[in-house]
Design a protein around this nucleic acid. Sequence first.
DNA 1: AATGGGACCTGCGCGC
DNA 2: TGCGCGCAGGTCCCAT
Length: 267
Amino acid sequence: MPELPEVETIRRYLSRKLLGKTIQEIVIEDARLIKGIPVQQFTAAIQGKTVQDVFRRGKVILIKFAPELFLVLHLRISGWLILSGQKEKFSRVIFVFSGSSMLNFCDSRLLGEIRLVKDWQELPIIKKMGPEPFALNRESFIALFKGKKSKIKTLLMDQAFIAGIGNIYAQESLFCAGIHPERHASSLGAQELGKLYLCIKDILKAAVAKKGSSVDTYRTAEGKSGGYEPLLRVYQRQNKPCFDCKTPVIRAVVNGRGTCFCPQCQK
DNA sequence: AATGGGACCTGCGCGC
DNA sequence: TGCGCGCAGGTCCCAT
């Protein structure tokens, strides 16, 4: 479900609401989401602990309870988080906080992950993760492509290459930059990469400002829809006229994922 | 090393 | 109304 803008939106809200709050109880509706540790152990370890920090790396949300105790939340494709006073639809794990607020980890397809670790930086997913898009300048962005040959869309979605971009914002960024999603990275010149850099930054920034895109189940942690959806230019617009040239938008499968692009504007 | 396919799971919308 | 099918914002594992 979530890419960088959605995850960052959730993180900001949780940070605002949960800092200093203590976990009173954990309700496990479906234990399959809890990975790497027996459920009993998981529950016992965070009961009574107080939130010290809520931060993000790529699409991963991290909640710090102690210097050596971090809750790791990954929403994967179908998860979302709702902070409310009740159990929500598709709630799988509920963290009940002091003040009776409840953080619902909702996930229709059960593909999400919840972990508890001592050292978050040692998690495999974190260890191999590429740089945060906002930490890059034009030069360092272009330098990432040195020696890369994959299709550009595959690269943008590769979390080891750059963190936080998924299927929506990869498509949107490539449309903005006028680059065909199946172009090989080695064929892209500095000018095209420079344009792509600006597009990625602008789109992610605008999407964060709008609190993400509510294409399907995504809601912000306060249960509201995101506001970026009306600004999407190609995502899921197959057969509809391109906003720029009116040519019908094409849908192809790139790297196993549905991919929309304008055959006229994206070369 | 890089790439492609399948697996993990369930729900929703569509056409018949 | 009911059923089957295709599709879904991510990541990992395995075979080639």
